[in-house]
Simulated scan of single mutants.
Amino acid sequence: MSSEDQLLRDHVLYLLEGGGAHLDFEQAIADIPESMWGAKVAGCPHTAWKLLEHLRVCQWDILEFSRDPDHVSPAFPDGLWPEEDGPADAEAWENSINEFRSDREQMIELVANPETDLFAPIPHGTGQTILREALLVADHNAYHLGQLVFLRRCLGIWEE
């Protein structure tokens, strides 16, 4: 592997892990009280649960598309958002967090693997590459984690 290839991988991994200007998932999700998981704020279309589940489902979908030619994505956009404002219970909340972490780690492993050609078109795609999909995950996560922090500020549960 060339030093340029490794440098690119390192930069992408840094983004996926919440580096630079990107918000860290663990920081954004930490200590949200159970009573606030489904709380609404006037003018904000999402709850913490809706954002968490959307992050999880989209990241999972991008990961699976990147590596599984038989993957079928959820219907856009409704299949990417939960219908409920809050989780069924604490176990559902924790499962969503843990699945997000697991899928992010699997995307990190895919990018870090020197056998992964970051520039090759994904055979079952329409021009996408692993590099593009990894950057999409980092960008999408950063956007919605920012929304989560804004929501938390509106709910009075975010400390600077």
Rank of each mutant, 00 (worst) to 15 (best):
L80N: 01
D89K: 14
A92F: 02
I97Y: 08
L15P: 06
L145A: 04
E159M: 15
W49T: 06
R152E: 09
L52W: 00
I32G: 00
T47M: 02
H71C: 05
L148E: 01
H22M: 12
L7E: 11
G125Q: 07
L52C: 11
F119W: 15
E26R: 15
A142L: 07
K40D: 01
I29Y: 07
S73H: 10
T126G: 09
E109H: 05
D61K: 00
H22Q: 11
V57S: 06
E105M: 02
C58T: 15
F76I: 07
E159R: 09
H22W: 13
H144D: 00
A134W: 01
S96Y: 07
R132F: 13
E115D: 15
E99V: 09
C154P: 03
S2K: 07
L131R: 09
W158A: 07
R67I: 10
S35P: 08
C154H: 09
V41L: 08
S35I: 03
H11R: 14
R101A: 06
A75H: 15
I32L: 02
A138Q: 02
P114E: 13
R152I: 03
F65C: 07
G127K: 12
L13N: 11
L52G: 02
D61G: 07
R9P: 01
H124K: 01
V12I: 12
R153T: 05
